[in-house]
Design a protein around this nucleic acid. Sequence first.
DNA 1: CATCGTTTGTCTACCGAATAAACAAAGTTT
DNA 2: AAACTTTGTTTATTCGGTAGACAAACGATG
Lengths: 399, 399
Amino acid sequence: MGINQTWNQFVVKKGNKSLVLHTIKVKSPSSRAEVAHKTGLNKGTVSSLVNELLQEQLITESGPGQSSGGRRPVMLHFNQIAGFSIGIDLGVNYLLGTLTDLQGNICLEKKIYYSQLSYEEIEKRLIEVIDYLSDSTPESPYGIVGIGIGVPGTVSTNGEVLLAPNLGWKNVDLKPIIEGKYDVPVTIENEANAGAYGEKKFGVGTNADNIIYISAGIGIGVGLILNGKLFKGSKGFSGELGHMTIQANGLKCRCGNEGCWELYASEQALLNEAKQLGIQSKGNDELTLEDINELAEVSNPDAIKLFEKIGDYLGIGVNNIINIFNPDQIIIGNRIATSEKWLKKTLEKRMKTHTLWYQHSDLNIYFSELNTHSTALGVAAITAEKFLNVDFEKKALEA
Amino acid sequence: MGINQTWNQFVVKKGNKSLVLHTIKVKSPSSRAEVAHKTGLNKGTVSSLVNELLQEQLITESGPGQSSGGRRPVMLHFNQIAGFSIGIDLGVNYLLGTLTDLQGNICLEKKIYYSQLSYEEIEKRLIEVIDYLSDSTPESPYGIVGIGIGVPGTVSTNGEVLLAPNLGWKNVDLKPIIEGKYDVPVTIENEANAGAYGEKKFGVGTNADNIIYISAGIGIGVGLILNGKLFKGSKGFSGELGHMTIQANGLKCRCGNEGCWELYASEQALLNEAKQLGIQSKGNDELTLEDINELAEVSNPDAIKLFEKIGDYLGIGVNNIINIFNPDQIIIGNRIATSEKWLKKTLEKRMKTHTLWYQHSDLNIYFSELNTHSTALGVAAITAEKFLNVDFEKKALEA
DNA sequence: CATCGTTTGTCTACCGAATAAACAAAGTTT
DNA sequence: AAACTTTGTTTATTCGGTAGACAAACGATG
């Protein structure tokens, strides 16, 4: 039994069926003829595959469409509500759960806030949220097709959370717990990886194949999409660019390293510096990013200078990213993206003055538009896609 | 006509034929039965594909092998001398040309030295070397199957050398010139990328899928092998880790950036510091890396301290690489690899003390064993592989 | 409104490639 | 020498895609 790479003819059918489905998914009112033309497959082949997909309820037919000078086509639609996906962004002090259809549209979401909870408490909230979303899921042929959870930490290839310092987690194996409880495939993914995928699917990165997503919150994590696919490294720990040294012999980091990027360019770095400057929260609460945003909004010079400094340091890391990856796109997301207005100028200045012309010529820096949703959407999309790529035979039986 | 991804049944045949060929290539005395077992293909299928490959002279049959309790198998061999590949390492002050068979064995090589030559002069030498190798190529069914050239600079996706500062090249389009002269496919590749591929194929990286090859000479270039494939970025300029900032607001680099890694950890950095320390060449010549190696060999404390410092800075970049890529292997190659003995300790110390346990637990740093040959061998291997993956029908006609 | 050309979608005949299984050839074991 | 093993070829079958015929549905045209 070849554990090897290449095979037989089932592969062809599976591949073509998948191709047909994706073609319909991308341009949803589509005729058989149109699909045949776009894919290069024979009309008959498309016809037969489409019929199977109809049986599996992954697509639907609707009435005839516009004629283009002949018989009117039967329109085919991707049946986005054949099943639903649950995507969770498990943050340090919040938990965002989304229920999406197979196309990634949000059907329902629930966000709760907390702080300093133990693992057990978080697990409890997590299950509450999943239950809530699960109970509200509309009837559909496949129901919940999977649950995805994005966490702010390193995740091993088999889904175990090895280390999530800001949560205080170490070697937490959440996957079997959730999988056992709900009996659907569960995907645990690093928050930045999931965010990168979310941006590629639903954000500004739709047409790019090499996307670097910088998730800058308390710390900095980076999701890498290389050649159109998430790159996770040999064990799943890639993208720890927050701990890339940008200042040899610089500040000590708890990771054991010195001069880590996130000590200079993260939300935490901003807050630390703000405190040193004597900037205080309006109330008596802990100072937050929102406070500083508000100050900058009313042109407080300290706040603006602070953002410029952080923007400059962000730029240093961005330049490194450009030199390392030569990406199509760089997207800055997570909490710090809310300060785009004041960060952008110095960041772009450093980029344009400190890299060679041919490196940044076709490159743009984007700030996330999905904002706080990229992780949840990304991990939901990963889950949905896993479902769609499962052997079709299985579906034929289930449906 | 689908420019799309998936197709028909020819794909299956091509894939399986390629699989059979590679199986034989990897374990060269192999029987049909063994191949069938390893690939999972049916005996009959293998038989028919093997017969085609025999006709195309890509494999050969030899007498019967050892019996394992039944009929003795007919042994199949990869016909490594069905064609030859030329791989050139075009360095700043040397030019190494190799003639290899399809397996990557060196049949002939020629190395010449020069310094400060104009582009025209280098092109002349290049052609002389290619002519020399080409004229000495043994008779074979396919002859020279391609020419590969590794250059120390950025190469665009279509093979144009955009910038090779140490050669003084800018927008040099060597590919059509060589292709026109010899009428075989020509591959221009960045020297570090080629080196990375060479290490994966013939060096210490054979079994790893994520390999980072650090080519540290005058400057530092890095070749990235991610998920088993060369990663070149969106336009082909990835791997410029030599210009990764490791010291914000550090030394100015001619690239426009500040604090670039190669200003602290390259051969050039070593030489600069050595000069500042008053270390001089034995003769009256320019100081070289070899001079400092010799000094360290006789335990000169200045030289040893210098290497330790450079090793430490190398370690900073290596740590960044670990955090960024989570690779299986890191290989340090090119000129600086000759100083392994004195660099290794501080480099590894920084790695072990400045990254988290789970990041370096399964990771080893290697110094290149192929030494000065990795680039030439790598680019020759890329060329040979391109040939082997060309449509087989074409070969049937040619042979 | 009948005819013609066009587009859509299905159906049939055919082909290429893989598989399973039978079979022949060549050895080994007892 | 008989029985079992392993190798490699051959044959029948199956599966999936393609080409092209065909029917249905529609617009344009006179």
